[in-house]
Design a protein around this nucleic acid. Sequence first.
DNA 1: CCATATACCTGGCAGC
DNA 2: TGCTGCCAGGTATATG
Length: 273
Amino acid sequence: MPELPEVEITRQGLLKKIKHQVCTGAMVRETRFRKTIPSDLGILLSGQRLLDIKRRGKYLIWCFERSFLVSHLGMSGVLRVFPKEEPVRKHDHVDIEFGDLVVRYHDPRRFGFIIWLDKTEIPEDLPEIKRLGVEPFSVEFNAQYLEESLRKITRSIKEVLLSGHVVVGVGNIYCSESLFEAGINPFISANKLSLKQLEKLVQAIRTILSLSLQEGGSTLKDFVSAEGKEGYFTLNAKVYARSGKPCLRCGKTIEKKMQNGRASYYCPHCQRV
DNA sequence: CCATATACCTGGCAGC
DNA sequence: TGCTGCCAGGTATATG
């Protein structure tokens, strides 16, 4: 599921429902994740007000009065607000309670995680956050920055964008869509792109992510917002999951090729560069 | 340094 | 009706 738009929509939905609320407990039913969730989360958070939730890439940073949580949704994670009497379903691993409401972390594949930090620790200093690239909507993300960052990188542009080390938040769906939007072939070496193409790429990534935010994200299978709403972006996807279908721009057949273990969808005519 | 493979997990679906 | 194999939004680690 979750690339930048899904994580951002989750963040906004959570804030709408529980910003400034006081945590009244937690229930941890499963601790085995990519990173272990502390089973005494309720003790660690109880009585603390949730001041804000920030996003960095696909990570959420929950700011409590004397603690932080850092969460990631992995491939199949959902954070959703329910009334506290809502029945527990399979793969509902963690509840964070706020009075009559509960934030429920549901994640069938368990590639996500929630970690707890004491207020003396700095979430931005976590190694996985430290190595992240720039935010796509920040001023630092521009063609000059890309040219500089990609100068010595011979890996394909698709791999580099997906890695998150240059720009964050662009996963497999939005990467394919952005490269189509910019007319760039996913297999081209990152250092072969002209400044003009990099400018197009910057704009394309912003356009695609903005469009998805407007559509409520993409629901392929699991994703819903914190308020339970599905996202409709993939209904408008021009290449993602459209292999064998005609390109909406030129009519040629959209291709699917595996790249680094991930599916890449592109139009061999519109994305020749 | 680089490219590639694999691992982590569950569920859904195509094909037999 | 099963079974098997493959694929899925992400990311870290290991192996050449």
